[in-house]
Structures are given as C-alpha cells and as structure tokens.
Nucleic acid binder design. Structure first.
Lengths: 212, 212
DNA sequence: TAGATTGTTAATCGATTAACAATC
DNA sequence: TAGATTGTTAATCGATTAACAATC
C-alpha cells in the first residue's frame, strides 16, 4: 500500500503489462504469479512486484495475483474516466496514418480535429472530419478543450508552432516531428516518436553488434 | 581515447546529437562546447563529454569540439559503409507509410522488398515494387541478404512469423506489431515502436500529472 | 501446519553528475 | 601566462535485483 509516484520506466511498462494480462484474461486464466509475469515480460519477479506496488499492490500473499483484478486495476490506471481529446497537426502521409490509428485502435483518446497549412488539402474531408487551416488551431483548442496535440509536421512548422502550443493550453504532445518540444519547455508532457532516430539506433546496434 | 562500448541510452542519444550538429553545421558554426550542446540537448556538459568519450573523444582540451569533425565522426558511426537492406512485412495502412518513410527519409537503409498475406493486394505495385506473398519472404531473405525486418503485421501474424524470422538470418527487427520478439529471442536486436503503448503512456502521464 | 508467494526493506548495479587535473 | 574547456576519475543518484519477514 505504498503508492509511490511511478517513475517513467514503470509507466512505460504499464501498457505492456496490460497487453499481457488482457491475453491471460481472454485465455481464461484466473491467477498469475510475479514469476510467471516476469517470464512473459522478460523481466524479474522482483520488478513485477515493485512495479505493482507503486500503485498499491494488487496481490495476495501466498496466492499471487488475480488476473481479473489486475486487468481492471491497470485499466483504471491507463484509461482516464473521460476520454482525452486529441488534435492532429499536419495531415500528410504520416499524419493521416496516425489519425487513422487513433480513431480505430486507441481506446481512451478521441480525435476531434485535423489541421494543415497546405491550401490544397484544407477543406477536404477525412474520416468524416474537415481538415482545417493550421492558423485556426489555437482558437479551436480554446473552444473544444483539447488535451493532446499530435504533431506530424516538418521540423520548421513545429518550431513555429511552439508559442501557439503554450497558448493553446494543451496538456501533452505526441510528437512525430524533429522539433524537440521537451527541450524547449520542460513543463509540457511529451512523448516523442522519432522514427528516424529510432531506425538509426537500430542500424547502429546492428552494425556495431560485435564491438569490443 | 577510452572506447567503452556505448550503452543503450548513449546510442539512443546519438541520432539526436547528429540532428543538432547537422543544424549547427548548416548554420556555419565552426566550434561548439559541451555546455552549448548540453543546452541544446537538454542535458549536462558532463553527459555530453562522457557520451563522446565512448567513441574516442572528438574534442580539443581548452578549445571545444569542431562541428565539422563531430558531424563526420557521428555520421561514420550512424551510417554503415554499406547500406542495410530492409524488407517490409505487412503492407497495410501503417506498413505502407513506414515503407514510404524508409524510402524517402532514411539514409543508410534500403527497402528491397514488401510482403503481405492478403491475396487482394499481392501482386500490386507500390513505390515501383511488387507486393509479394508473405510465404515467400524466408527464401527472399536468403537470396537477397536482408539485414532488417520491418514488421507491420497484426500480433498473431507476427507470432506465426517468429520461427521464420530466426531461419531468415536477419540481424534486426523494426517492430510495430504487438508481438514482442525481444522477449522470445534475446539474441535478436529489436527496436519496438509500439504506438499504442506510447500513446497510453502519454495519456497516463497527463492524467496522473499531479499525483503526490 | 507446510508451501507458496506477496509486500517491503536492503544490496547491487548502472547511468548521470560533479570535480579536477591535463592541455590547448 | 591566464582562461577556457576537455578527458577522466570519483561521487551521487535512481532503478533493478535480492532477501526475507508477513501471510494466505
């Protein structure tokens, strides 16, 4: 029953726990031990227990964890009571794919707007929503209570947006651009998905596998 | 001149250094100090120096780092002498976007094949390449020397692929599926891009910002 | 009761930060 | 020479792992 604030590594593991426990639940498994979970996660029983104890400890000494309880508790942690509202900035190739992903595969997050600066596509309908001009997004955010900005613009556009972002009063950014919001404003909650950086890291690790 | 094997956090920072140093180079900046870089990176001068010393230390005491030299050294580290060959498994919405990304925005990696199990799209041409049946990818890998597998299939399909992957003798996986290759085969080099997990972590952090 | 397995405290490990001698 | 800034060693911090008492 400690309820220590969860550290970032713990938070990052939470969705993975959720995935595996959902699988167990669907298989009809009733109980699971920290060592079984460690096995599935590729970690250690200690870590599993430490992780869960950040949130209050869902287990029973001598018995293990109830899959059902674990599932519903982690669900409560991951899905807020009201869905978060998100807005897409940059409706290019990647942006549209991510928008589609949010609409179809994410529980917990609503896509409520799409913005672009290209006149050629402004006004087009996509997923039943009209692509609006980029310049109108700050006003939109004020009216519609937007929580998350999904940034899929080129770097320069993202950089220009930086001031507007602060004005817009959003709580977090899902950032696919090469502009690092977190470096410039540490109060923002940012998750970066830097595809290029990620592929480079993979390529480095492959190439230097046998170093020393 | 220590040349310690770079740890994963250091490797992950390398592409970011590269981005910032490329910018400095394009601006015509000649020299940069560890504290300036720390500022741009949102880290500390100590970390910058430690990081670079993993690769042999590119600086000059009392003077700083030459932007030109830093750029070319990091480039050498990140881009292998021969490009790596990659193959896409799963040419759905996300897969096609990623393929497009690799073709247009990644130096250092070649896309040499695309595979899917859906008969409706097998044989279609995309980016001048024919989508081939999934069943043929192991043979293809043997003939064409494939280094990287980009997995954009649903979880079940990825799970079925697991054995073939080992046979195929690839060196690394860029994984967008919900099947965790790294847990099941720790000898594989895997970079996971779990969009759903990532968005969930963002949503958790937003919702629990003010906890304790 | 004995065996199993948690919750929690303590020990270890690794990464980050600080300090300082070396040197341009 | 004095000032600046690195390379490198030492100190700190945080996360992971181990140990063990509590308890089902």
């Amino acid at each position: 029953m400690s309820h220590i604030k969860a550290s970032l590594p713990v938070i990052r593991r939470l969705p993975r726990y959720y995935r595996y426990i959902t699988e167990l639940k669907n298989k009809g498994t009733q109980r699971v031990s920290s060592s079984q979970l460690a096995n599935i996660m590729g970690s250690t029983p200690s870590q599993v227990r430490q992780d869960f104890n950040c949130f209050g400890g869902f287990g029973q000494q001598g018995v293990g964890y109830s899959v059902e309880l674990l599932h519903s508790e982690i669900e409560k942690l991951l899905f807020p009571p009201e869905k978060l509202n998100a807005v897409l900035l940059g409706a290019g190739n990647l942006g549209v794919t991510i928008a589609n992903f949010v609409l179809k595969e994410s529980q917990g997050v609503n896509l409520v707007g799409m913005f672009d600066s290209d006149n050629a596509i402004i006004g087009n309908k996509l997923f039943g929503m009209e692509i609006k001009p980029m310049s109108s997004f700050v006003d939109f955010c004020q009216e519609e209570h937007v929580d998350i900005l999904i940034v899929c613009t080129p770097k320069d556009a993202a950089e220009e947006l930086a001031c507007d972002v602060i004005k817009s009063d959003v709580k977090g950014i899902w950032n696919y651009s090469h502009f690092d919001f977190s470096v410039h404003d540490s109060s923002l909650i940012v998750e970066n998905v830097h595809l290029r950086d990620n592929l480079m890291a993979l390529s480095y690790r492959i190439t230097h596998k046998d170093d020393e």
